[in-house]
């Protein structure tokens, strides 16, 4: 049975776990092709106008898979840790996708709810197995394998490997060439280091981000993202807020921003937000205010389906010029 995994939303975070789990359960998982303008257009047609860009992208991938897969993997991600959610849209994603696809293709929609502990993960794996008609005992083994692969991949991030590179190593994405977060070999000249923050599905999707990461690396910049920063540093940074954020990804992004700013590891921060994203509208604001207080150059890019590449890159270049001029004028203390 061919089960399609949309290359969108939390694919960028949890693909190693999902893919391994499905493969070990004996089905044939495969990933939809990289987002293109056509994916985006298909998604826009299927989604309600008010939906955010990432959800539209997700629907575009689902539409592609509906034609080629026997089932599409659309987990209902309520929570991946105690006392936190992901975002309301992830909680209703299977219902929205089911509606958007008009029930053309069966959806595999395990409930992932870890608010009350890691037992929720076993329940989710068992649900997948049950839906596929596989014995539950195999679910535990498959989950253990999946988690081992996921942890190994996350460890690679912590050592500076960008998630798309790690996914390519696993064979989940075509190898993109180039390497890590350092400038690509042959870049014009070495420049400073930047933080590129935002939800992983905005930062790493080359269509959605207008290939920002690759362009920065090609221009000689090094980059840090929320995933390349050790998780405990992110946690510590997030705890600086008077009230904990209740969105897992928002917390990671804020924590990463706080860490990068206090450690002086970056010359500037770029935040990729999606238009209509609830968490981004607040986390982006909090990060912007922190950057202002700390005197760190900050650029907020809000992406939607109408964002043009030329306009965005012009803004980024202006921002980078500003950083370099500032550095030239006054070498950063410490």
């Amino acid at each position: 049975m061919r089960v399609g995994i949309p290359q969108a939303l939390l694919f960028w975070t949890y693909a190693p776990l999902w893919f391994t789990l499905l493969k070990d359960l004996g089905v044939e998982p495969f990933v939809s092709r990289a987002t293109t303008r056509a994916t985006l257009d298909a998604g826009v047609k299927l989604a309600v106008e008010e939906a955010c860009l990432p959800v539209k992208v997700f629907f575009g991938h689902c539409a592609e898979l509906a034609a080629s897969a026997e089932a599409v993997f659309v987990p209902r991600l309520v929570s991946v840790e105690p006392r936190a959610y992901i975002c309301p849209k992830f909680m209703g994603l299977p219902d929205m996708a089911g509606r958007a696809l008009g029930r053309q293709v069966p959806l595999l929609t395990p409930l992932v709810d870890l608010r009350r502990g890691a037992g929720g993960l076993s329940a989710a794996a068992a649900e997948v197995a049950g839906a596929l008609g596989i014995r539950r005992r195999r679910a535990e083994q498959a989950l253990a394998c999946g988690l081992a692969v996921q942890r190994a991949v996350e460890a690679r991030w912590g050592r500076g490997c960008l998630p798309p590179v790690a996914l390519a190593e696993l064979g989940l994405l075509p190898a993109a060439g180039g390497g890590d977060r350092g400038p690509v070999p042959g870049a014009a000249r070495r420049r400073g280091r930047l933080g590129v923050l935002g939800h992983p599905y905005n930062v790493y999707d080359r269509q959605v981000s207008l290939d920002l990461l690759a362009r920065l690396l090609a221009a000689g910049w090094s980059v840090e993202t929320a995933e390349t920063i050790p998780a405990d540093e992110c946690e510590a940074g997030a705890r600086e807020l008077p009230k904990e954020l209740f969105w897992t990804m928002g917390r990671r992004v804020y924590g990463a921003a706080a860490y990068l700013m206090s450690s002086g590891a970056v010359e500037g921060l770029i935040y990729l937000a999606s238009f209509g994203c609830g968490p981004d509208s607040l986390v982006g604001e909090l990060v912007a205010r922190l950057a202002e207080r700390r005197g760190v150059p900050f650029l907020l890019l809000t992406l939607d389906e109408h964002t043009g590449e030329a306009g965005v890159w012009t803004r980024v270049e202006a921002f980078l010029d500003l950083i370099e001029r500032r550095e030239a004028r006054a070498p950063r203390p410490g």
């Binding site: 989604a47 309600v48 008010e50 939906a51 955010c52 975002c87 309301p88 849209k89 909680m91 209703g92 219902d95 929205m96 509606r99 958007a100 209509g276 994203c277 609830g278 509208s281």
Partner: peptide, 16 residues
Amino acid sequence: PLTCMPEIVAETVLPE
């Protein structure tokens, strides 16, 4: 309100 996340989910399934 515009960009309200829970209501966008509801809006998507209301046609059903």
